[in-house]
Amino acid sequence: MINFEYAQPRTEAEAVEFLQSHGGQTAVLAGGTDLFNLLRSDLIAPKRVVDIKRIDSLKGIQQVSDGLLIGAATTLDEILASPLLSPYHSLRQIADAHHSMQIQAMGTVGGDLCHLPNCWYFRNGYGLLGTVNGESLAADGRNQFHAIFGNRGPAMFVSASRFAPALIAWGAKVRLVGPAPDQVELMPLEYFYVNPKTDKQSVTVLQPGQFVTHVWLPAVEPTSPVEQLSAAYEVLQLEGLDWPLASAAVTLGVSAGIVREAQVVLGHVAPTPWVSLDAATVLMGREVTVELAESAAEAAVAHATPLSENDYKVSIARAAVKRAILKAVDMLNV
């Protein structure tokens, strides 16, 4: 770890200012559960670390006119405890599935969304794309935990965020501030992620000096005739702290037993969260049954492009989609 400056802003504007110096060679510190590993491994070497935990507006969950705003520095424990989030089952399920008191106490929503890939080639110093002499190590190397979708470009890693699939399925947006002092942007979370084509790119659209302040969630109307159901299913090899082998999140709008709206998003299968319109289409206008969930799951993985060692992940992704759908309608029985 190299020495760095440490800044502790109290406002978003201060944070933007602090992040802009050193030509943007700065890093955001929230819970630190990923950042410290990156620093200690010298995978990143920021000149300044900007700690956003003291910015009050970034903490906690608040109701706004058209939904909820989750501050980027909100911890997983706060997600679990918030009554405002009780209609958003999939989010709580993700927070709970971390199975680690330490991560739940320290880890934040913003940190999860910006978590860099766990690809072991990246983490061992071969760059974001994991290359030697321009050749991908994962392409036909040790790729058992790598992508089965979106892997026809140079990136083979899987997106590390555990919340992103569920949030995208909910139609969440991210609020970004910076790099210009007054610049504020609200964008669908789906478009926040980038499948990088070069080592210079990152996994999100964030520019130097820009950071995530909030996640916006649309309101769930309890009186709406269309019931909003959701679930997430993460396939975890270990019962303790472990990264999913694959995951799926679904949000269903159900009216009189019929699916009227459906979003299906897979996680840990591609360099970005992976939206499956095919699976959603299968569900639309139908009543959820085990057979329908299986059909949707099959549609979700039909176009998978597994690498040399990760064909098994297709089966796991299929199971995750099926189970997330069944879980959402309370029919899961495994």
């Binding site: 199975h99 766990n118 072991w120 080639y121 983490r123 061992n124 071969y126 030697v132 190590l137 190397g141 040790r142 935990f145 090899q237 270990l238 019962e239 303790g240 702290l241 472990d242 990264w243």
Partner: peptide, 20 residues
């Protein structure tokens, strides 16, 4: 390819937790 011990960390050198 690299000849390296690629999972030499406690994230990828997977040990069971109490629930396992």
């Amino acid at each position: 390819k690299t000849g390296r011990y690629i999972n030499s960390d406690l994230q990828n050198y997977k040990l069971p937790r109490i629930g396992d």
